[in-house]
Amino acid sequence: MSVLTRRQRADQLDDPDVANSLTREAWRRIRQNPLAIVGGTIIVFFVLIAVFAPMLAPFNPRSNAWFDQIRPTSIPGPSRDHWFGLDEGGRDELSRLIFGARASLMIGVLSLGIGAVAGAFFGLVAGAFGGWVDSLIMRLTDILLAVPSLLLALSVAAVIGQSQTAIVVAVAVPNIPLFARMLRSSMLGERQKDYVTSATSVGVRRRSLVMRHVVPNSLAPMLVQASLALSTAIIDAAALSFLGLGSADPGVPEWGRMLANTTRLLNVAPHLAIFPGVAILITALGFNLFGEAVREALDPKLRR
């Protein structure tokens, strides 16, 4: 940090928000980071598409009104009427991609949200109670962490069956032990700190000590993990739907499934593989760039 003039320092001391400077400082760093700007723009772009899908899509994504144009050896590519061409079922590819953004983002965000909240809950319980509760929860996370995440997701989805709910739950489960461990270990770290000792010594009760002091201070690593895990969640969700675990109704547009359906048609209609693939790639890249920026902003070790 550059050397402040006395005047600036005085201003800073007068600023009532300085007490909250960790968050403000982080936010300032994010806004100034070009990675965050590119990533954020991509995220906003896809979120807008997902939200306004019904208005943006030129056609109904499930309508196969153009099925008569589909031949085993040729599928119409991009044209004036269909900017991204038709898919193998005679549906408008662009409309399917737009509605697919909705499914992909929603599944990704939901599954990560469920995983993070459930994980945080277990981590909180383990960190706050300690003792045998802590041991039990930690041994359970050991077991879940012994299975690689995609494999764990697959076995969860296998039990629930073909549906979008299955994908959400399946992608959420591998995140639970990660977030549980993370919140617990950062709570343990916080517990050693002076402010906890002083709060205890002035008689703050255990519950409010945990909820109002320890937890808020332990959240930074969770935030970093969540922003980086979102891209993985979106890719994993697409992967499960690629493997055929999404909705049992083939009319439902999902990026992963759209890619899977075209495997046989690579030579006939490569555009059908390229569009959804690139869509997943760019969305994941956006979340990765933004997550990277959040990490740089919140991780003191990376600050220069």
Binding site: S231, I235, L259, A260, L266, G277, L281
Partner: peptide, 12 residues
């Protein structure tokens, strides 16, 4: 590289 879905890269 970390953002590209394996199944997409494989197909390409």
């Amino acid at each position: 590289g970390v953002s590209i879905p394996v199944f997409f890269l494989g197909q390409i």
